[in-house]
Amino acid sequence: MPELFHRKLERSAIGFVLAIIAAASVGGIVEIAPLFTIDETVEEAPDMRVYTPLELAGRNIYVREGCYACHSQMIRTLRDEVERYGPYSLAVESQFDRPMLWGSKRTGPDLARVGGKYSDFWHVAHLINPRDVVPESNMPAYAFLARTELRTSDLGQHLAAQQALGVPYTDEMIANAPRDAYGQAFPDSEAASGVTERYGEATSVSAFDGVATRLTEMDALVAYLQVLGRLTDAAFRDTAATEQAPDAED
C-alpha cells in the first residue's frame, strides 16, 4: 500500500480521514479519559463482596436472556424512584459488573434492589409463568430454566477471566468454583460450608428452585436476583438527599 501515500489526491483523501478522526475522537477522549481515574472519586465500599460462582452463573443467564431489554438496574437520584425502589444506585455498586446492566428501558420494574424483596419461591413461580403470580404481567415465561441443568464445569474459567480483569477472586475461589456453585444451592451438603467461608457469612445458601436434587439454571438466576443490591450496604449508609422531579405535581 505505500503507493497510496504518493499521489497528491491520495494524500488529500488521507488528510481528510485524519481530520475526521481528529474531530470525532476528541469528544470521546475528553469525556471518557477522566473516567479512567474515576476510581479516585468512586465511593468506598470495603464491605463489598464479589459474586459467588452460582450468582455469577445466574448473572450470565440474565445477560444471555437479554433481561436488560426490559429491566433497568439503576435507580436514579429522583425522589419517586428512591421511594419506589430504594436508595439510589452508587457507582461503586457496579464496580465488579462486566458488562454493567444499568439498562435503558423499564417495561418491567427496576431490579437494582430486588434482592430479598420476594421469597425464592415467589421468584421461581414468577419465572415459570409470570401471569400465575402477577396476572397483568407481559413478561415472557422462563419455565425452561427449571428444566435446564446448570453447566458448572467451566465456572473456574469464568472466575479466572474475571480475575484477569481485576475482580478480586482468589485462586482458592477459582479452584473451588464448581463445588461452591453446588454448595450454595444445597444447604445440607458438605460443600455448603465452603461457600460461607469464602464469600462471607451473609451469603445466602438455599435450595433456590425448591428442588434439592439437581442444580438448575433456575437456581443460579434466583441466587443472582436475590443478591441484587446486597453486595454492599454502601447505598444505605451515605447517600445524599434525592432530587425532586422538576415538575412533579405534589
Binding site: G27, V30, E31, A33, P34, F36, T37, T41
Partner: peptide, 15 residues
C-alpha cells in the same frame, strides 16, 4: 501521576 481533577480540568478548558 495524572489526578482525576487535572484530567477533568483539562477536558473542561481545552475541550
Amino acid at each position: 501521576e495524572i489526578s482525576h481533577e487535572t484530567l477533568v480540568a483539562f477536558a473542561k478548558s481545552w475541550g
